[in-house]
Design a protein around this nucleic acid. Structure first.
Lengths: 299, 299
DNA sequence: GAATAGATATACATAAATTTATGACTAAGC
DNA sequence: GCTTAGTCATAAATTTATGTATATCTATTC
């Protein structure tokens, strides 16, 4: 007697429990009830011959094995989501939905008008925007199209280099009127600086070039790039943002022009399989044009 | 009322129908009955709002949309299979199963003794060997470890360069006794040649260097490399095989030494996630050693 | 041309899974 | 200390899905 392969529903419930942390919550998320999810997990444990969770009154905590299996279940879920998206409209028609991922600033400041223009031309296409500063995996189809600030490392992806987004030190006019305009890099030490909280690769690069300060110099610390931008706009102090964004707002002043020397290489990426999907392809081309426009204006 | 997300079982049945070509066959493959699978497909069609198959008395033929969705379902299936493999044994113990993919010759001629040695040391690890000349997708976890003859293009994979497998013209002693030994490359035209049926990239490269013949010159044509090797061993004529294999068999003669000038770059590849799996890691290292040994002997 | 094998589709009884309802337990807030 | 909200576990009720049996249709074979 061969061990019957477990049904895929079991994996779905298993993943939901991992994500939600309890049978009850998983049940709610899936539109099932707690006992059902409980039995699914039990059944999967029996089928795999391994215990997946240690039960406790405040929820289930996953075992080692459960954590190892999680990735695979996530892949299944991503594929299921991608399938749904692909099925959301006939590939030859321009209808359905497309999922785009980008950094938060780009998603909030740059993309909206571009997407609005696209929407005007193709009103049947719904757009999902997933904003995060961790890069989502296009090979896993976490998204259909990605705007990346790093050269794509994964081969086999369709990528287009859009150009370089210039970064620059900015401050609000109101701030400068009160505190004066920094005349040199060293002068910045006397100002309210806006910067990152945790040190990322970008910041280490900047510091290596001596062009940026450590965490302790910042009067306003936030990892979110939009939060920093908001702080600049609110006149909190001096911070870094994309030159293109600064130029849009007449009250923002670009300081110490050209001294930053650090730019964002910008790429548009998608999965090769999606080239045949009309709506994805159209949005890809549209984004390429719109972003190239934006980048050109920032230079 | 939000449209409820379709259950994963439906995808499973959908894929089975695509693979098997009929509801009945899919039912047999899944251990379900034809009406059940039929209902699954119906339900999925309703949930997606698209027709997936056109019914006919001789089976179901997939629609355009069904073919587009297939990839995603395949990804789900691959992930499910990978999950099962991962769950086949605790990651810290050396037990469970590992799936290795390689070309047919390598799998038939080179790997068996290496795997046998591994088995002796780790008797609890089951080994799945998937032999094919199309490269399986490691990112999709179609296999855990791959022996590749081309440099891996997909970034983010763990790859180790093992060296270069030398190829050479070979013939069986019995053939040479009857038909004489070809003295030069041009002389080959007077011999029974063993070669490929369809033209692959490898062959085009060879022909571009003027070191190989077209399809029409071959007296024995087979796309399978093992079949070619078998033909050489049977004394059918002159063909190409790995020097390391020729050297093992005292009756095989390496002809026109060093004139071929075409080699196989060899790589061992695995998914980075699997580094933490003890059994996969051990087999990876063992294969690296064993294959490097084999390659060294072929030079 | 009839018989066969393989396919889908439908009807209905049955088996299986889900929901509902309940109990027991834990942690936090008043 | 008691209430409230959260959890998992269990047993009975019900819905749901499955399997069986049958009809039908179409190529293929004898």
């Amino acid at each position: 007697m061969t061990k019957q392969e477990p049904g895929w529903e079991l994996y779905r419930s298993f993943l939901a429990v991992l994500r939600e942390g309890s049978l009850s919550a998983a049940g709610r998320a899936l539109g099932l009830t707690q006992p059902s999810v409980g039995r699914h997990v039990e059944e999967l444990e029996r089928a795999l011959g391994a215990s997946l969770f240690t039960r406790s009154p405040q929820g289930l905590t996953p075992t080692e094995t459960a954590l190892e299996l999680r990735t695979h279940a996530e892949v299944m879920a991503a594929a299921a989501a991608a399938l749904l998206r692909a099925a959301s409209g006939p590939a030859d028609e321009v209808a359905g939905s497309v999922r785009v991922t980008a950094s938060v600033v780009v998603g909030v400041e740059v993309l909206p008008p571009i997407l609005t223009a696209f929407r005007r031309d193709h009103p049947k296409v719904a757009i999902e925007l997933s904003l995060s500063n961790e890069t989502e995996d296009l090979l896993r189809r976490d998204a259909d199209i990605a705007v990346r600030m790093v050269r794509p490392t994964q081969g086999a992806l369709v990528a287009r280099h859009l150009g370089v987004i210039a970064l620059g030190l900015h401050a609000h006019r109101s701030y400068l009127e009160t505190h004066g305009t920094p005349a040199s890099w060293d002068d910045l030490a006397n100002h309210s600086l806006i910067g990152f909280d945790t040190e990322t690769a970008v910041i280490r690069t900047l510091r290596a070039r001596g062009r940026y300060f450590g965490r302790e110099h910042f009067a306003f610390r936030a990892d979110s790039d939009v939060a920093q931008l908001a702080a600049i706009r609110a006149g909190f102090g001096v911070g870094i943002c994309q030159v293109g964004l600064g130029r849009r707002d007449p009250d923002l002043v670009h300081l110490l022009l050209g001294t930053l020397g650090f730019d964002l290489d910008t790429w548009l990426v998608m999965h090769p399989d999606l080239k045949s999907s009309r709506r994805v392809r159209l949005l890809y081309d549209h984004l390429a044009l719109g972003l190239a426009d934006y980048i050109r204006n920032g230079q």
